[in-house]
Amino acid sequence: MSAFPTEDMEMTRLLVVSDVAASRQWYEEVLGAHVDHEYESACVLRILGGWLLLVPGGPPTEDKPTVTMAPPTDPDRVSAELIFRVRDCRSAYETLRQRGARFLTPPLDRGYEIRAFFRDPDGHLFEISELVA
Rank of each mutant, 00 (worst) to 15 (best):
T68P: 05
K64L: 15
D88C: 01
G50D: 08
F103Q: 04
I47D: 06
L54N: 00
D36K: 14
R24M: 14
D19I: 00
E38M: 15
E40K: 10
L131S: 14
W26Q: 00
Y39W: 13
P56T: 00
E127H: 04
E113A: 10
S41E: 15
R85V: 09
P59L: 01
R87M: 02
R87A: 12
E94Q: 09
L53H: 11
D88Q: 06
T73L: 03
H124F: 00
I128H: 04
S129T: 11
R13K: 05
R46A: 01
L108Y: 09
L125F: 02
V20G: 02
F84R: 07
A70M: 11
T61G: 09
F118V: 09
P56M: 00
F126V: 06
S41C: 11
H124T: 08
G123K: 03
V30D: 02
P72W: 06
P75W: 05
V55G: 01
T105H: 13
C89P: 02
A70S: 14
L52P: 08
A42T: 12
D122W: 07
I114G: 03
Q98L: 15
Y39A: 11
Q98R: 15
I83M: 14
V67R: 12
V20N: 06
T12P: 07
T105W: 09
P107G: 15
R119A: 11
V86P: 05
E94S: 12
V20I: 03
A22Y: 04
D19C: 08
V132R: 07
R119D: 08
V55L: 11
V35R: 00
G111A: 08
F4E: 01
D63P: 01
A133C: 13
E94A: 13
P107S: 05
C43L: 02
S129A: 09
Q25H: 07
E94Y: 07
G32H: 07
A22H: 09
T61L: 03
W26M: 09
S18C: 01
F103V: 02
I114A: 13
T68Q: 00
I47E: 03
E130G: 08
Q98V: 03
M1D: 06
R115Q: 13
D36M: 14
Y39R: 03
E130K: 06
D88P: 01
G123P: 06
E38I: 10
P59H: 06
D74C: 08
K64D: 09
H37G: 03
R115V: 13
G123S: 05
